Structures are given as structure tokens and as C-alpha cells.
Computed example of a mutant assay.
Amino acid sequence: MPDNSSSRPSGFDRRAFMAGAAGSALVPMTARAAAQDPRAPAAQDPSAPVDVTLHVNGKDRRLRIDARTTVLDALREHMGLTGSKKGCDHGQCGACTVLIGDRRVVSCLTLALAAEGQEITTIEGLATDDRLHPMQQAFVDNDAFQCGYCTPGQIMSAIACVKEGHAGSEADIREYMSGNICRCAAYPNIVAAVKQAAPEILKG
């Protein structure tokens, strides 16, 4: 008689095996390892508040904020420093420009945690007593603003432009200030303001 043992069920279900393998592939390796090791630390909630100290305009400001908070939102929402403006919130208009060290940054794209331990200067930190910063005074003298919404970012960027050595000609000023948009189109006056303030800033 022929041996029909090969046609008998072996207890192995190919479809069940494939379904189980596909399901396990969807679970990340780290999650599977954590599930297998009860001693593994629980994943930290990214929305949980964190402590951060920001050095702003010469003062330490201690905050408890969401880790995803930007420098701009930390300034405006947590410190009440509303001079830096939220324009596009995509780093494209320059209205939120501040200085971190001597480097100009768009604060709407910079995490507050990344700025910890560095000197942050905003428009509120420029004037001393009743005396305007030379760049602020130059903007007033040259009518380098109309609605004024972009002006804080323009001034902060202009100071950096001078310190970077890019204020030697009108063409350089226009090129290196091109990241700051003025919807009122006060560009000729802005260039004139930068030219006026540059010698005094470089002097000291």
C-alpha cells in the first residue's frame, strides 16, 4: 500500500506562522526589548515640562517649559519680551531675529533648550538707560521703518551684518540683509541706516 503519511496534517499552520511574523515585524526592536526586559526604563513623555535657564539680555531666566518650545515662544509667552515678532513662523521673514552670541538666528526655528548657556540678545536689550543703540538711532534718523512690525528683526540682523564685516558697500548690505523682509519696502532707508551706524558699532 502507498504511504500517505506525507498528506496528513503535521500540526504546522503556514498561514498562522506568516501572520505572526508580519505582526512582530511591525513592532520596533526597542519596544520588543523593553517588553521583554521589565527593568528597562519607561520612555519619557516628550510633552513633559523641562527646566531650562536662558541668559537673556544679561540676566538668567529660569523657565519650566515644553521641550519643544522655541526661543521665540520662550521670549514672548514665558518672559513677556514681545519685541521679537512672530511673522511667518517658518524662518522665512526674519521678523523674529535675535542674537545668540554675536550670531543672528531666526528664533522661531531655534529650540530654547539648544540656546541654554549662551547669551541671547533681543531688541529690548540694546538701549542703555535713555540712550538708544547706534543702530536703533540710525533707524529713527533715516525713517527706516513704516509699520514697524519687521523693525526689531531688521535691527538685530543689521547689527550682526556690521559685526560680520558685511557693511562695506550698499550691495553687501542688501545681500546680507536679504533674509529680513520689509513688506512696506523701506529697503533704501534700511541700507542708509546700516551705513550710518556701522562706523560707531565697529568703533566700539
Score class of each variant (00 low, 15 high):
Pro28Gln: 14
Asp73Ala: 06
Met156Ile: 09
Arg39Asn: 12
His78Ile: 04
Ala34Tyr: 06
Gly91Leu: 06
Glu77Leu: 11
Ala158Ser: 15
Asp73Arg: 04
Leu26Phe: 15
Glu170Ala: 13
Ile120Pro: 00
Leu113Glu: 07
His90Ala: 14
His55Trp: 10
Val71Asp: 01
Pro2Asn: 14
Arg32Val: 06
Cys184Asp: 08
Gly58Trp: 08
Ala160Asn: 04
Cys93Gly: 02
Ala198Val: 01
Gly148Gln: 09
Ser47Gly: 07
Met156Asn: 03
His133Tyr: 13
Gln154Ile: 11
Gly101His: 09
Gly58Ser: 09
Ile65Asn: 01
Ala192Ile: 07
Cys182Gln: 03
Ala197Val: 07
Phe12Arg: 11
Val56Pro: 01
Asn57Pro: 07
Ser157Pro: 02
Pro49Val: 08
Ala16Pro: 07
Cys108Phe: 10
Asp172Pro: 06
Val98Gly: 02
Leu99Met: 15
Pro28Thr: 11
Gln44His: 12
Pro9Met: 12
Ala67Gly: 13
Asn57Cys: 14
Arg64Thr: 08
Phe145His: 05
Tyr176Cys: 03
Pro188Asn: 13
Thr69Asn: 06
Val56Arg: 00
Ser6Glu: 13
Pro38Gln: 13
Ser47Asn: 13
Cys182Ile: 05
Cys184Gln: 10
Glu124Cys: 07
Ile123Lys: 00
Pro38Cys: 11
Cys147Lys: 10
Ser84Asp: 03
Leu54Thr: 05
Asp60Thr: 11
Ala48Phe: 09
Asp60Ile: 11
Ala193Val: 03
Gly83Met: 08
Arg64Phe: 04
Val98Glu: 01
Ala112Cys: 10
